[in-house]
């Protein structure tokens, strides 16, 4: 007992870090917990273990439709915003542009505007232009929200790598397109993957814009929102939340694994 202080050095910061992690994990961990609880009511004490909520989730066509809508919108938004972000990042980092500062600030505005204001102003414009609400209007609003994120990620990736690498490729005989394809793209690739993942996640989880700008086709957050009002539907929603969590965990782990393998595999002397 006397010796223990030399083994265990109390580190205030480490203790704090553990407490902090507890704070951010604890509430979230109750979601999967109650998804296995054999009761409609989200209260303690816990009842028996059950998988029926997962069964209910699997057999809910409404939920599947919403999920499918969200994936459709998310994929489209992720790809478009990453392409636009890549072009814009290249413009900003590789060319001397007049008014670069104000232009970039303008593109970043969606980051510093409350989402609800973005949502209602788009709603007003769309209704005044008499465009029908649909998943397209939701997707467009998500695109606005995601472009700044894509651009920030890709700008930092582009700035991080040495411009003389591109010059070296030109010097060794490649034209602008092949230089992009053989040098810029592979080096920026981790940034592209990060941008795709982040923007998909943002769109997939976005509620306020979708709430104002969708019509009869719900996205997943809209479906969750409307289900939260019905206590009987909640356990199945928790099961869905837990499933999304597990799937995204595997997706992120897999993409990290691919990225690391990719770095190792690529440097073969393939031409």
């Amino acid at each position: 007992m006397k010796n223990s202080p030399s083994f265990f050095k109390p580190d205030g910061l480490l203790v704090y870090a553990v407490l902090y992690l507890t704070f951010i994990y604890l509430p979230v961990l109750f979601l999967p917990l109650f998804s296995f609880n054999d009761s409609t009511y989200i209260t303690f004490p816990l009842k028996d273990f059950t998988l029926k909520w997962y069964d209910k989730m699997i057999n809910s066509p409404d939920m599947h439709e919403a999920l499918f809508n969200s994936i459709k919108v998310g994929l489209t938004v992720a790809i478009l915003s990453t392409i636009l972000g890549l072009l814009a990042a290249k413009a900003v980092t590789r060319y001397r542009l007049r008014g670069r500062g104000p232009l970039v600030s303008f593109i970043m505005i969606p980051l510093v505007i409350p989402e609800i204001i973005l949502a209602i102003s788009l709603l007003i414009l769309i209704s005044q232009a008499e465009i029908p609400l649909s998943l397209w209007t939701v997707g467009f609003s998500h695109l606005l929200l995601c472009i700044p994120f894509s651009m920030l990620i890709l700008i930092s990736r582009m700035e991080g790598f040495d411009r003389s690498l591109e010059e070296a490729a030109m010097d060794l005989g490649e034209n602008a397109w092949m230089t992009f394809w053989r040098v810029t793209f592979p080096i920026v690739l981790p940034g592209i993957v990060a941008s795709l993942l982040l923007t998909f996640t943002i769109s997939f989880d976005e509620f306020v814009l979708a709430f104002f700008l969708s019509s009869t086709d719900p996205t997943l957050p809209i479906y969750i929102w409307s289900s939260l009002r019905f206590p009987t539907k909640i356990p199945a929603i928790l099961a869905l939340g837990a499933s999304i969590f597990i799937i995204s965990f595997f997706v992120v782990s897999f993409s990290e694994w691919v990225r690391r393998r990719g770095v190792k595999l690529e440097p073969t002397s393939r031409i």
Binding site: L165, A168, A169, V183, V263, P267, R270
Partner: peptide, 14 residues
């Protein structure tokens, strides 16, 4: 300006 995503042969063959 050695290409970081290629090995020595890849760089020389570029």
């Amino acid at each position: 300006a050695i290409f970081p995503h290629m090995d020595v042969r890849g760089n020389i063959a570029f």
